[in-house]
Design a protein around this nucleic acid. Structure first.
Lengths: 219, 219
DNA sequence: AAAATTATATATCGATCGATGCAAAAATCT
DNA sequence: AGATTTTTGCATCGATCGATATATAATTTT
């Protein structure tokens, strides 16, 4: 008579001592992700997390193991649930130019919170984890940051193969450039830049693309 | 007989008028700046600071007041001693285009530590102070970040006044773009990007300038 | 319904955080 | 010289950090 598939959440929170009901792990992870995203790893304390999740610290440790492990899971959650805001149209675009433009324009929207009720800036880009004291998490976020470059460069290679851009193009320089612009957007977004402002940045940035992918000017 | 006039700030070795065994305040501030720069505000503890400075915590508090105040002084020290690496040629350039190009190219050198033995990335750009818990310092670094935009935009306005670029140019978009590229460079530099890589980014970025400052294509 | 299981809340752990009180020690002033 | 001044090193403060042991209560099994 009880199916109890491990997640039958009730939004009501039981206040009694003891065991009110198994908390919703997914919802708690979502809260943790938002908190880490908005405040960063070090600035987010266990107290902050347990308060936002509505659970006690033993439940947190039983469910996620440690603060580090929770952050790692939050990173996965972030990439799984929010990357589409930035990369969705990129992957659907028929040409590299449209893909890059979609990536930058959609980044402008996503990073400023115009597409959903989310913190400003990219959780991965703005994470300062790894500067000291957390080498494992540092490698994690660094590799996450590197994936932006990888995706862009891979798309550029495809564009070369398809003849969209000249084979003589310096794909590393171009991909680093795109990565640089998108990274910079996160910082501006965190400081309060608005979506239209960043969209204009994206448009200006694309002018370099047009120029750079046409080495011999042939108007 | 004694040269200490008891109320003029010692110009040279910063020898306190009391006990000469007093530590070198300037050198200590330099160490603190480097530490904050490399590790960030929250990740740098008082213990880290006192160890690097070679003093005890009471001396630190007597000399600087608090961790916050020390960070504020470190920011001043940073701007006073290292901004020239990035802005020196910008201010000397005869045209806005050369100024912007110098700014981006010199940023590539400075942010990757090619001009001196300094941490990678910009202390101001990468500072996550203000995300939570330190509103005063947050405003400080935010305004410091805003100064990049202000300087660039002011130079663009001058360029319009001098007829270097069309009056119809969207200076906000262009200045935000330059700011975005330079901010992004800091993140790449922190992740280990090399100087030549960022210089190529600067060159690609300048292609947008050439295109954007010529609204009616007249190649 | 009683027993066994499970996950919670309370309370607290040692370590470290930023910040200070105190007395010893060194240099200037008288 | 001695008295005063001032910084330092040692020790420690209360608060908070991340993490855990214990006890209790709701759920599951028998």
């Amino acid at each position: 008579m009880q199916k109890s598939d491990a997640l039958s959440p009730s939004p009501e929170k039981a206040r009694g001592r003891g065991r009110p009901r198994a908390f919703d792990r997914e919802a708690a992870l979502a809260e943790a992700t938002r908190l880490f995203w908005a405040k960063g790893y070090e600035a987010t304390s266990i107290s902050d997390l347990t308060e936002a999740m509505g659970i006690g610290s033993p439940s947190l440790y039983a469910a996620f193991g440690s603060k580090d492990a929770l952050y790692a899971e939050a990173l996965d959650y972030y990439r799984e649930h929010f990357d589409a805001f930035v990369w969705g149209n990129f992957h659907k675009a028929p040409s590299a130019r449209e893909a890059i433009e979609a990536f930058l324009v959609d980044s402008a929207s996503a990073l400023t919170g115009y597409v959903a009720d989310i913190p400003c800036g990219c959780m991965v880009t703005l994470s300062s984890v790894g500067s000291e004291g957390h080498p494992e998490l540092g490698n994690l976020v660094r590799s996450a940051r590197a994936s932006t470059f990888d995706r862009v460069k891979q798309r550029l290679e495809q564009a070369v193969a398809e003849g969209e851009i000249p084979a003589s193009t310096d794909l590393n320089a171009l991909a680093r450039y795109v990565q640089t612009v998108q990274n910079g957007m996160s910082i501006l977004a965190r400081d309060g830049a608005e979506c239209p402002e960043l969209k204009s940045v994206a448009e200006v940035a694309m002018l370099s693309w047009d120029r750079y992918t046409r080495p011999t000017q042939a108007g």
